Simulated assay, not measured.
Amino acid sequence: MKKLLIILSFALALFLSTSLESSAAASTYTVKSGDTLYKISKMHKVSVSNLKSWNKLKSDVIKPKQKLKVTGSAAKPAKAKAKTPSRSTSGSVVKEFTVSASAYTASCKGCSGITRTGINLKKNPGLKVIAVDPRVIKLGTKVHVEGYGYAVAGDTGGAIKGNKIDVFIPTKSAALKWGRKNVKIKILK
């Protein structure tokens, strides 16, 4: 009888430690190549802002093998948005100025198609994304570009310094047609 009680106690302790480990593992996520905060938020049914808050992230940039908390104390279910950030037409104008705008595509030789903030442009050719100098326009900022529309500042580029932007256009021919021009940009709240 005593042996049976010891065996049952051991089995119960083993079961409890395994369930505690699996719940701890479920509260973190290891970033894989190609992941974005948006994709991870949808997998775990949390908002991107909660992920950023729980992990003390100042931008949307994440790296493979990075461990992220996917649960927190103030967890709120992610609300379904009718529009993607690049198509948002809401928000008040915080600042307006003129920039030199050129165009880029994700299908160039040697291009990965993944932006600085982790957006996969090859899989999402309909998104409106611009490359910016983060010292002038912060990554993740919603903007309106004259002649292009509402977009998100989601990428950077080696030649993008100061008041220059690159607008993402899915096809090479359309990107070449855009050329280089001066346009007004509105930074949205």
Rank of each mutant, 00 (worst) to 15 (best):
T30N: 11
V167G: 04
S73L: 15
K69G: 04
K67A: 13
N55D: 03
S73W: 12
L20T: 05
K56S: 15
V136T: 13
K63Y: 15
V129Y: 06
I160R: 01
F10Y: 02
K79R: 11
N163A: 12
S47W: 12
V145T: 01
I165F: 10
K81I: 02
A151D: 02
L16A: 13
L121S: 12
A101V: 04
K109H: 11
T28Q: 04
T105I: 13
I160K: 01
A25F: 14
A82G: 08
G158S: 12
A131T: 05
I185L: 13
L5Q: 08
T115Y: 11
S90M: 03
L8T: 08
I185T: 02
L57A: 12
A24P: 00
L188W: 10
R116K: 15
L16M: 12
K56W: 01
D155M: 08
V167F: 10
G72D: 09
V99A: 02
S107Y: 15
K186Y: 10
V152G: 03
I160Y: 07
K181F: 11
K186C: 00
G162N: 05
G126I: 00
R180H: 14
T156L: 04
K95C: 03
S88M: 13
T18V: 13
G126L: 10
A159P: 00
N124W: 08
L20Q: 06
D60P: 01
P125H: 07
V167M: 04
I130G: 05
N163C: 01
K172T: 11
D60R: 06
K39H: 10
V152I: 15
L8Q: 02
S90F: 06
Y148G: 02
W54V: 03
P170E: 02
Y104F: 15
G149I: 03
L5S: 08
A26V: 02
L139V: 10
A25D: 12
L20S: 06
N163W: 12
L127G: 00
I160C: 03
R180T: 15
T18Q: 08
D133K: 05
D60N: 14
K186I: 01
G147I: 06
Y148M: 05
N124R: 04
V129I: 15
T105N: 09
S41H: 08
K69N: 10
Q66P: 04
V143R: 00
K95H: 02
T98S: 07
